Computed example of a mutant assay.
Amino acid sequence: MGTIVARKNAKGETRYRAQVRVMRAGERMRAESKTFSRRSLAKEWIRRRETELEATGDVELPGGADMSLRDGIRVYLEAVGDNFGRSKNAALRALADMPISEKRVVDLVPRDFIEHVHWRRAQPVTRSHPGGVGPATLNSDLIFLRLVIRYLQHSEGLPVGPSVVSDAVDALRAARLISKSSQRERRPTADELRRLDAYLFERWQSGRMRVPMWHVMWLAICSGRRQEELARLPRGGFDREHGVYLVEGGIKNPAGRVSSDVEAVLPESGWAVVDRILADFPGRDGLLLDINPKSVGTRWNNACRMLGIVDLRFHDLRHEALSRLGEDGLTVPQLQQVSLHHSWDSLRRYVNMPARRGERFEFSESVGLGVKE
């Protein structure tokens, strides 16, 4: 029996999803779906597929139809997981341990994803989600699951498509249970940076903090690099003559991380920070800073907590770096040479400039200048 469901896409255009199901004794034997721009095309496809299935008797589900969503997630991660970042892969591994992943992929319907969202919202608060799971996190859940199902549809030949998630997304967005992440505009104030500067330098100089967070903080502010990228800067990759440096192993990319090395422009203020790092940690080979990105995040959060600084993430220093360059008059192409964003749409999330420029605490004012280990 065929059905047609009309739905609007992100551009507001109406699309028609045609679905054909074959049931025997109350059990689904086969299900196929396809989306069209016109209802008449959807009706014609249903008529043709029902005729073909009746003529051939090919109603059995393909091999692998017993695959659970948990197994499907594992298949997806094994096949393409290396193309994406740690956060997405970790989220998918977490989803593989949730109740929705116990279901067979071919049995999934929009209601299952709606129930998943309600189940997630009902879970006790955790350290990572002290306010409960938010609409943006739930939206990411469904985006990732939709990618998995699209992959399994084509790689395993399973008769289920991403529209089974899209229909749930439409209903959940209308109910405001899921939403895209809001643009974060948090930047450290001059007073917060002044306090962090003094605290981190004193902790490093006294030997009570082995991770050189004072150096890491200023390198992030003056380069705009992410914390895990700061751990992959080879000393031999700094070219002062051309004002550029090398990031080993590539950078994060929405289209999938490319592992090849890339070059970025280092603003003038960044060279003063690099010179100080080389003076405090002499050597010509190896990495500029021998740090663990996870330790950087932990030490940063601990420092903010000790100083009573609320809701300031290490990643906010990337916002600070690029916003400072925007305030200094750099053009979009010049900003992209520093940040390595491929498009302005991605870059503008990081450039947060108020109408009135406030006080800025500069590296040249740091308590650590002129003081060496």
Score class of each variant (00 low, 15 high):
residue 43 K to D: 11
residue 24 R to C: 08
residue 13 E to H: 10
residue 29 M to D: 10
residue 16 Y to W: 13
residue 55 A to W: 06
residue 33 S to M: 08
residue 70 R to N: 10
residue 37 S to C: 13
residue 24 R to H: 15
residue 16 Y to Q: 10
residue 16 Y to P: 01
residue 40 S to L: 12
residue 41 L to K: 11
residue 21 R to N: 11
residue 70 R to D: 04
residue 36 F to W: 07
residue 16 Y to R: 06
residue 58 D to Y: 04
residue 47 R to L: 09
residue 11 K to N: 12
residue 30 R to W: 12
residue 24 R to N: 10
residue 60 E to A: 10
residue 65 A to N: 06
residue 69 L to W: 02
residue 41 L to G: 13
residue 37 S to F: 12
residue 57 G to Q: 07
residue 41 L to N: 13
residue 26 G to R: 02
residue 17 R to A: 06
residue 67 M to S: 09
residue 21 R to L: 11
residue 29 M to R: 12
residue 60 E to C: 02
residue 26 G to S: 08
residue 57 G to P: 00
residue 53 L to P: 01
residue 16 Y to A: 02
residue 49 R to H: 10
residue 36 F to N: 06
residue 69 L to F: 04
residue 15 R to Q: 12
residue 33 S to R: 04
residue 15 R to Y: 05
residue 51 T to F: 10
residue 18 A to D: 11
residue 56 T to A: 00
residue 32 E to G: 04
residue 69 L to D: 02
residue 14 T to L: 12
residue 69 L to M: 07
residue 47 R to G: 08
residue 11 K to W: 06
residue 18 A to H: 01
residue 29 M to K: 13
residue 25 A to W: 10
residue 44 E to L: 13
residue 49 R to L: 12
residue 52 E to C: 00
residue 31 A to R: 10
residue 43 K to H: 07
residue 23 M to V: 08
residue 60 E to F: 01
residue 28 R to D: 01
residue 55 A to F: 07
residue 32 E to L: 14
residue 49 R to E: 06
residue 15 R to L: 15
residue 18 A to V: 00
